[in-house]
Design a protein around this nucleic acid. Structure first.
Length: 341
DNA sequence: CGTTAACA
DNA sequence: TGTTAACGG
């Protein structure tokens, strides 16, 4: 779920064109979950191939990556490893709400209530090993690199950003900033319009950059204090946060008292968590340094075979998109020729 | 989510 | 030509 830092952030609008020439570390699980929950047929069911296997994530990944490559953006996917022990309460909590929602879903199906079914259908989806293997397969065939993080994907993505391997981390969550990412890119999507859940209203969603330095300067805090603010609000490692403290109160307190222990009347709340352990999760996370990463060649034939033969994608659509990619490559080498001649 | 078909 | 609905798998 991530930390609720939206109200404190100072996003700067950007676009695919603006990000041309950049390397980005994509929070793999975050993007996969988005595809699985948003790419659906009319009944709210995810897309499936003729064998009944879910394919929403394949559709999303294919089109999104073609768009990135067409704009000369180099994505590197970072996949989650073993979840940290401190996350177990959150995972348990999520499991409980998922099971409750699954029950609601089943009931809605029984009652023939499509609207309710659609609302709870996302709880039927889990990122399992099959899904991960599909993702790895498509990425390999697209020639896109991925790295396996030892623990939190966002932590390794942030590390890659910090040491200059990538220019941005990409996620909808703000956690990579807590992990020390220099720049976070949110809403890195093509279509500008997105429906507000359970309404018929649409809002324009544009890609945005949040720069850690600017964020800290604007709020007149350092990263350690940002982490304390997050802990007050609630993080994956202390999901409930401190009672009656939201973003506004959290920043007010930290600006005034500098750290959580110095805020008056926090003794009882502090007894509930090991605060230094939580801080350490963000300030000193388990990360790996990936080897030098270089984009590989797209394997067009195998990609078409995998998507169209194995997963029933339309051959016309897929080959058209690949043709578009070829066209961009052609233009690129043409302009390169001009440079030399 | 991203593309395409339909429509003014 | 630009906006919106519906489809994709």
């Amino acid at each position: 779920m991530g930390v609720k830092l939206k109200d404190l952030s100072n996003p700067r609008k950007t676009s695919f064109e603006n990000l041309s020439g950049n390397k980005i570390a994509i929070d793999g699980f975050n993007i996969i979950y988005q595809f699985l929950t948003t790419i659906r047929g009319p009944t709210g069911e995810p897309l499936r191939n003729s064998k009944g296997k879910i394919t929403s994530h394949l559709t999303g990944l294919f089109y999104r990556n073609i768009n990135l490559l067409n704009n000369n953006i180099e994505p590197i996917y970072v996949l989650d490893g073993k979840p940290p022990q401190l996350k177990s309460t959150l995972i348990k909590k999520r499991k409980e709400t998922r099971e409750k929602n699954q029950e609601k879903y089943r009931k809605a199906i029984e009652d023939g209530d499509q609207e309710q079914a659609r609302r709870y259908s996302h709880s039927m989806i889990r990122i399992n090993e099959d899904i991960i293997n599909d993702v790895k397969k498509v990425l390999e065939l697209l020639g896109i690199q991925y790295v396996q993080a030892p623990a939190e994907g966002e932590a390794t993505a942030a590390y890659m950003n910090d040491i200059g391997m990538v220019d941005y981390t990409v996620s909808q969550d703000y956690d990579s900033l807590l992990f020390g990412a220099k720049r976070l890119c949110r809403n890195l999507t093509v279509s500008g319009k997105r429906r507000i859940p359970r309404t018929n209203r649409f809002i324009d969603v544009e890609p945005e950059i949040i720069e850690l330095k600017e964020f800290l300067r604007l709020n007149e805090i350092n990263r350690e204090q940002l982490v304390d603010i997050a802990i007050l609000i609630g993080t994956d490692y202390n999901p409930n946060g401190f009672t009656r403290i939201g973003p506004k109160t959290a920043i007010k307190h930290i600006k005034k008292y500098k750290k959580i222990e110095d805020i008056p009347n926090m003794e009882k709340e502090l007894e509930l968590i090991n605060i230094d352990e939580v801080r350490n999760m963000f300030l000193n996370p388990e990360v790996s340094k990936p080897d030098f990463i270089q984009k590989k060649e797209i394997q067009k034939e195998k990609l078409i075979s995998y998507l169209c033969d194995e997963n029933d994608f339309s051959i016309d659509r897929i080959s058209n998109m690949i043709k578009k990619l070829d066209k961009v490559e052609e233009e690129k080498s043409e302009s390169l020729d001009k440079w030399f001649n």
